[in-house]
Design a protein around this nucleic acid. Structure first.
Lengths: 342, 342
DNA sequence: GCCTTGGATGGTAGCGCTACCATTTGTCTG
DNA sequence: CAGACAAATGGTAGCGCTACCATCCAAGGC
């Protein structure tokens, strides 16, 4: 029985049903749910009872329409399978799990155009905040962010000119640290191997280059890159290319840990001793770096924390107290291991 | 200047603005955007021009409220960083990128309670479809799915009693295949190593057990598991435990590839020859399995395709032609490699 | 030539909620 | 004890869109 209400909607309880049952006005129910402090203890209890009994759940669409603000965090990342972004996203989810905010992720596939499109889509929802990876937005994407009318956090790297707020680290410094470490360890012919050279990879390469030039050891033939997405198997292939091009190679800074692992495996296969003949440094310090044999030196990045800090900043801004420090640099940390210990 | 419209909303163009500019009724604009076929060529062009000029983007919240249906796919997965689910999610995103549907992901953290909570939250939005990982919903979660009023696809595994539709494969068969392969290769003391024993892992274990029992070689001491989340380093540790418990171990079926990689590294470290002294089989066949040294035999699963097929089924159901075949079994495939070639 | 039919278009009335502005009541001040 | 004020509650009017039901007009049938 009971085809309760109108043509659509399927007859779920509305705020009016709750109000009727609790014997109060609809607006009081609304307040009791959103700002309990502004409703008397008595009514609050009555309303809660009615909510429980009816199984009332507010309709977020109606709420968003009426308040011109959706309880949604828009998150834009270039890849969903890259462990690095997955960790950031996990940090975001974990920080938001006890809040009323929902999360909507967009995958830009490393494309500026796709980023613009998604920003358009996200913006139409009037999100509570936007978190975007990277600092190299197209001019039009940047304009969309500036006019989004909500807090914006750029993550993954730091730069001089935030749209609003930033959490990340310097990829240039990370790359330089890695190269300097190899130099200190006594390696001389140090290659750079990188796949999918996005802007952050480019800056790591720039850091590597700076260190090599400072040592007077830079040679463009030491660099091996490809636009293809990164993978362990690709790391192996690129290393073989690099070695073919430059047989005297004695070290490599890998743009990420997958590549580094691929390099390590190829060394095993080719019976190249790591670290004696070849030194290897990775980037990100994934868990497996510490376990591999030999274990691999890597530049640790604080990916999960980038996610949690970004949310914390956005939440603060939503609450009206934008943090003084609008740029947070979480830094990187070189973790020395067997792969460069000679 | 121009504080265009009402108190809220920030003055973005609405459908009424477009209608005015195009000299038509609002409803015609709405139709032109959603069902272009029902509007005459002429008006359609006029309306499109007005849309472009004003930069009009429909408000999805208003749309959802008015039509009692949000253009959202709700996706529930137990983990965001586990590569397996990341691949499924990527398949979902890629299949939906040209559609008007947005995606909302929920992370259940392998918790039935959390799954119920998220289902509640998602349901309140009246999503266009729900995609959930696994088939072991709690009774109350299952009820929520049955009453969701939209297509539901359970993914990752197949079972006898779908809520609505299913795409996946049999973990039991996968586990059995792996164990049988090790047996055929001549291994006898074959261990099972698994972390985070979710229901799918349990079924892989059951498959392993069935094969071992059929061969008369089952021994509970061969099994090493932990509720801790899986990782490469954990694989190493568990293998050491397994070996301590059962020093005559000559093979391992690893619950997933991360574990398998950890086992391989520990074999290197302990100078155990793979595949001569220890045979290793992984599960999922991640890219790195083919590259490692030695390469690792693994049970390939079709994760990306699970995502694309799930979307295809849901889309068909939304369009009104629910597929005849409500359960799709994508199967598994044993990829034989060096780690079991003796 | 009148009536039917169907395609194209528009008007009206909400969808379920909250912003804004009362209104009511109780408490405090001088 | 009047007046001021704050706290608690409610009514009204939308938010921007689409479902539903007209209305209109041209084409076709008898």
């Amino acid at each position: 029985m009971s085809k309760p209400r109108s043509r659509r909607g399927g007859g779920r309880p509305t705020i009016a049903d709750v109000a009727r049952k609790a014997g109060v006005g609809a607006i009081t129910v609304s307040r009791a749910l959103r700002e309990p402090g502004r409703v008397s203890e008595d009514l609050r209890r009555q309303i809660q009872a009615a909510v429980d009994e009816l199984g009332y759940v507010p309709d977020p669409n109606a709420r968003a329409l009426a308040s011109a603000r959706a309880e949604v965090f828009g998150v834009l990342v270039p890849s969903l399978t890259n462990n690095v972004f997955a960790e950031v996203v996990r940090g975001i989810y974990d920080s938001l799990s006890d809040s009323p905010f929902r999360i909507q992720i967009g995958n830009t596939h490393y494309s500026g155009l796709e980023e613009e499109r998604l920003l358009q889509v996200f913006g139409s929802q009037r999100p509570a905040a936007l978190i975007v990876a990277g600092i190299d937005q197209t001019p039009s994407a940047r304009r969309l962010l500036e006019n989004a009318g909500c807090p914006v956090v750029q993550v993954m790297e730091t730069g001089p000119d935030p749209v609003d707020m930033m959490v990340g680290f310097s990829h240039l410094n990370g790359g330089r640290t890695a190269a300097e470490h190899l130099l200190e360890a006594g390696y001389r012919k140090i290659g750079f191997i990188g796949a999918r050279m996005d802007p952050r990879s480019q800056r790591r390469l720039a850091g590597y280059r700076a260190a090599m030039e400072a040592a007077g050891l830079f040679d463009p033939r030491l660099i091996t890159t490809t636009p293809v997405p990164s993978s362990v198997s690709l790391g192996r292939e690129l290393f073989r290319d690099a070695l073919a091009k430059m047989p005297t190679l004695d070290g490599v800074f890998c743009n990420n840990d997958d590549i580094a692992l691929g390099v390590l495996f190829e060394c095993h296969r080719a019976s190249l001793d790591v670290p004696k003949q070849i030194g290897i440094v990775g980037f990100n310090d994934l868990d497996m770096m510490q376990v591999s044999f030999p274990s691999i030196t890597s530049v640790r990045t604080h990916r999960y924390e980038i996610g949690t800090r970004a949310v914390a900043m956005a939440l603060a801004a939503i609450a009206g107290n934008r943090p003084d420090q609008r740029i947070i640099d979480l830094g990187t940390e070189l973790i020395r291991r067997e792969s460069t210990a000679r």
